[in-house]
Amino acid sequence: MPRNGSFAILFNTLVVMFMLAPLVIVCLVAFTPENTLSLPGWTWSLRWFRKVFEHPDFVTSFINSLWLATVSASLAVGLAVPASLAITRGNFPGRQALEGLFLSPLVIPHLVLGVALLQMFARIGATGSFVWLALAHVVVITPYAMRLLIAAMTGYDRSVEHAALSLGASRLTVFRRITLPMILPGVSGGWLLCFINSFDEVTMSIFITAPSTITLPVKMYMYATESIDPMMAAVSALIVGLTAATALLLDRIYGLDRVLVGQR
């Protein structure tokens, strides 16, 4: 087993602390009984958490975000599975171009996309449409699913599918019983990455959400520009808690690094 030197341990500790400190502080602030952003002293309070749930628009935007992330992650994975199958197995002209096309949203700033989509939505009358919002999210999150799925499918032994075919399985059965279970880590990992990215997306969503489709990050941003009070900390703490629980679940089921790196 490789052992880290004391310098490496110190360095890593500092990095982890540097990254975690803001999260820890925001979670602590959420429990303050005061009216300002301050660390709680001897008395802790849940008043700001109660306040969150007294704001029905926050709860609605949270449900909007959950729903949006679920729908767009599912659509993105539904698109990415056949696309990456074609890209990793097919031998057709334009295969590379197709891969580039699917991964290209990664390099386009969300700000630019947001402005562009705002104009397009206004033109086609899609402003305030949940479906178009979801489609916009699909565009920006699909690359994450593609990366994982392409990794999961590269080096995949096709003769396993041939074996199933030779044993009398139909093409659909081969996909359902053999291919899908074998790429499942890529599928589920991709879905979760997509979900997180969609849930977290704010830059583009600011431009293209309407009051009826507003997402939690956008709502938080708008609230924070008007007033600074510990309720923002409480919302953040809730999201941190939810994310941590999801990450823990993911790690328990597949192993986080395997899901995120897409390796067996």
């Binding site: 003769s159 041939h162 074996a163 199933a164 075919l165 030779s166 009398g168 139909s170 279970p181």
Partner: peptide
């Protein structure tokens, strides 16, 4: 089609279903 021939095939890589 391959899935209608009913032949038994042993592959070089064995091609067992890993799951």
């Amino acid at each position: 089609p391959a899935n209608s021939r009913g032949l038994g095939i042993v592959f070089q890589s064995y091609a067992l279903f890993p799951h």
